[in-house]
């Protein structure tokens, strides 16, 4: 079964990554761009956690009678990365709110038009 799955997780992660990337570069709405970035970030988390998985392992909490644990190191890295992802998302959204107040729109194309008029 593992052989059959092989790289399935990684491929889906890359599709999700590219979905987020596409939203960031192709969509003009700034809120949507931040959401695209969020999707990209979450897909990276899944990539790391997939690598930490060991076949037949369990959660890395030491317990009598268990010997195989999944790798705790990527868990630690991603745990803190999730909190940092919220920090960046919040800052990004705060910038969008200020841009909306300054330009009256959160559409990138409209903002460019307004900038060219000045």
């Amino acid at each position: 079964m593992t052989e059959l799955l092989g790289h399935y997780n990684y491929w889906i992660v890359i599709i999700l990554m590219m979905t987020g990337f596409y939203i960031v570069i192709a969509r003009p709405n700034l809120v949507k761009k931040v959401i695209g970035l969020f999707i990209f970030q979450t897909s990276v988390f899944i990539l790391f956690i997939s690598m930490a998985k060991i076949e037949g392992g369990t959660a890395p909490i030491i317990e009598e009678g268990l010997s195989v644990y999944s790798n705790p190191l990527p868990h630690v890295l991603i745990l803190t990365a999730i909190v940092v992802s919220l920090a960046t998302t919040a800052l990004g959204l705060a910038l969008v709110v200020r841009i909306q107040e300054a330009y009256g729109t959160s559409n990138e194309d409209d903002i460019h038009v307004q900038d060219e008029e000045d």
């Binding site: 969020f38 979450t42 988390f45 899944i46 956690i49 997939s50 930490a52 998985k53 060991i54 392992g57 369990t58 959660a59 890395p60 909490i61 644990y69 999944s70 990527p74 868990h75 991603i78 745990l79 999730i82 909190v83 992802s85 919220l86």
Partner: peptide, 21 residues
Amino acid sequence: SASLFVVLDAVDVALTEAAIG
């Protein structure tokens, strides 16, 4: 993705993702 983290044995990460994400 939080549910997926539980399946992948990353319970701490799942808790964080569910609360934050």
